[in-house]
Design a protein around this nucleic acid. Structure first.
Length: 419
DNA sequence: TCTGGGGTCCTAGGACCC
DNA sequence: TCTGGGGTCCTAGGACCC
C-alpha cells in the first residue's frame, strides 16, 4: 500500500494557522506581484474563485464577500511544509516529498489497520502543525491520489481514507472524472472526450493497445495503476536537479538595459545559490527577457542569449559576469519588458568535474574560497548582505500589497502571545 | 493599472558512427 | 546503373505535474 498525504488548500491553510479568526472564512493567496489566485480556502472556492484567476478580475467579488487576501509568503509555506514532512517521517520509514504540499508514504510491508492509520496520521499533522491534511491509502500511487481527494469530498472520510476492495475502487472510479486523474492532462482529456471516455472507470476499461497507441508510456502506466498494478516508482531519494530556473514578472515594465541588468543579476545570484546548495556545476546558462503578451497593442519580443562554461562552474563572479553579457545580448531598445529569467542547464556533480588541462588551479581555488565565503556570510546574516554592485539593493522588484509576516523564519516577525 | 513560477519525463527525428 | 543494416547520442517540443 501507498499513502498520499495532501495538505488541504495549503497556502491558505498556512496563513490561517497564524490568523485563526479566518477559519471558516474565505481566504485566497496570490502569486508573485499579486497576479493570480494560486490558493483558495473552501469558502473562497465556493464563491467561484478559480485557480489562476487574475486578481484584478475578481477584485470586486473579493471585496463584496470580505475575502481575506494574502500575497504569497514562500518562506512561511516552505517552513510549514518541512514541519508536516517531519510528522509524516515519524509515521513511515520511507517518504517521497512530491511537492510543497504533498508527500507519498511507502507502506509496503506494514501490517496495520490502514483506515485507522490514515485518520490518525491526519489528526497528528493537525495537532502538531495546525495544517489540515488529507491522507489517502491505496494499492498504487495513482489510486492513493484519488483516495486523498475523496477525503476532501466526503465529510465522512475527512482526514483519511483507505481504498482497496475491488468493489469500492469500481464504485469510486465510476464517479471520478478522468480529467482529475493524476497524469491525465488537458490534451489527453480532449482526445478521450472524442472517444466517449469520461470517468476513470471508462479509462481503466480501454483496450490496452488503444492506450499504448494514443498515450504512450505515461498513459500506459496510469492505466495500469488504475487497475491496481503499481508501476510508478517510489522515489524517496532526492536527486540533484537537472536544471534550475529563476524568473519573475516585474511589477512595472522595464525599458532600459541597466534596470534589466539589476533584475537579472539578482536572478543569477539566486540561481547560483541553489546550484551550490546541491553541489553541482553548470555548463550552460540562458538569460531570457520578454514583453507583456497581454498588451497586444505594444510591440512584442522574446530575447534570449546563451552562455557556456566548458569546464563547468558554480562561481558567483563568473555567473553574474556571464549573466550580464547575456542580458546585453538579449536586450533590445524600444521594448517594454515584463518578465525575465535565468535558466541554468547541463548540471553535473561538482565531484564529477574533469578539470581543464590548462586550468589555473591556484586561481580556481581562490575563486572557490571567495564564493564559499559569500555563501557563509549570506547564510549567517541574511541573503544579499554581501552582494554585487550590479544587484542594486539585492531585491527583485515585486508588488506585494498583502504580505503576511514571516512568522516562523524571521526573528522580528515572531508572533506575540498576550499574557 | 492589474494575467505565477519551477520542474520532469518521453518521443521523434536528425546527425553521426561502423 | 547499382546505394545496407544496425546502432548511439543529442535536441526540440509536447505533455504533464504542483
Amino acid at each position: 500500500m501507498f499513502a498520499l498525504a495532501d495538505c488541504n488548500n495549503f497556502f491558505a491553510s498556512c496563513e490561517r494557522v497564524f490568523r485563526p479568526e479566518l477559519n471558516g472564512k474565505p481566504v485566497i493567496v496570490l502569486s508573485n506581484n499579486d497576479g493570480c489566485a494560486v490558493a483558495r480556502s473552501n469558502e473562497a472556492k465556493a464563491l467561484g474563485i478559480k485557480m489562476g484567476d487574475p486578481f484584478f478580475k475578481i477584485k470586486g467579488l473579493v471585496e463584496r464577500n470580505g475575502v481575506a487576501v494574502f500575497s504569497g509568503n514562500f518562506p512561511l509555506y516552505g517552513d510549514m511544509s518541512r514541519r508536516v514532512q517531519a510528522v509524516l517521517r515519524e509515521a513511515a520509514p520511507s517518504v517521497e516529498v512530491y511537492s510543497i504540499d504533498e508527500a507519498f508514504l511507502d507502506l509496503r510491508g506494514m501490517d496495520v489497520d490502514f483506515d485507522r492509520f490514515a485518520k490518525d496520521l491526519s489528526a497528528r499533522c493537525r495537532k502538531l502543525t495546525a495544517i489540515p491534511v488529507s491522507v489517502g491509502v491505496a494499492p498504487t500511487k495513482t489510486l492513493a491520489k484519488i483516495a486523498s481527494k475523496l477525503c476532501k469530498q466526503y465529510p465522512k472520510l475527512r482526514g483519511g481514507c483507505y481504498m482497496h476492495r475491488e468493489e469500492d475502487i469500481e464504485k469510486v472510479l465510476r464517479k471520478f472524472p478522468v480529467a482529475d486523474v493524476w497524469g491525465i492532462g488537458r490534451r489527453s482529456v480532449r482526445k478521450l472526450e472524442t472517444m466517449g471516455v469520461k470517468t476513470a472507470w471508462d479509462y481503466r476499461n480501454l483496450h490496452p493497445s488503444a492506450v499504448r497507441a494514443l498515450f504512450a508510456l505515461p498513459g500506459w502506466r496510469t492505466w495500469q495503476e488504475l487497475r491496481g498494478i503499481p508501476c510508478i516508482e517510489f522515489e524517496d531519494i532526492v536527486e540533484a536537479k537537472q536544471s534550475i530556473c529563476v524568473s519573475r514578472s516585474f511589477a512595472h515594465e522595464i525599458r532600459t538595459l541597466p534596470e534589466l541588468r539589476e533584475q537579472v543579476a539578482n536572478f543569477a545570484e539566486s540561481a547560483v545559490g541553489k546550484l551550490r546548495q546541491q553541489h553541482s556545476l553548470c555548463l550552460e546558462m540562458a538569460v531570457f527577457a520578454y514583453t507583456n503578451r497581454f498588451k497586444t497593442d505594444l510591440p512584442q519580443t522574446f530575447g534570449s542569449a546563451l552562455m557556456t562554461f566548458p569546464d563547468g562552474t558554480a562561481d558567483h563572479r563568473s555567473f553574474v559576469t556571464a549573466a550580464m553579457h547575456a542580458t546585453a545580448e538579449a536586450f533590445r531598445e524600444g521594448y517594454a519588458y515584463k518578465k525575465a529569467g535565468v535558466v541554468i542547464t547541463k548540471l553535473i556533480a561538482a565531484a564529477d568535474r574533469t578539470p581543464s588541462l590548462f586550468a589555473d588551479t591556484a586561481a580556481e581555488d581562490r575563486d572557490e574560497r571567495l564564493s564559499a565565503a559569500l555563501d557563509s556570510l549570506n547564510a549567517a546574516y541574511g541573503r544579499g548582505i554581501v552582494r554585487f554592485g550590479v544587484q542594486g539593493d539585492g531585491k527583485v522588484m515585486s508588488a506585494r500589497e498583502h504580505q503576511s509576516p514571516h512568522y516562523t523564519t524571521r526573528w522580528e516577525d515572531l508572533p506575540k502571545v498576550k499574557v
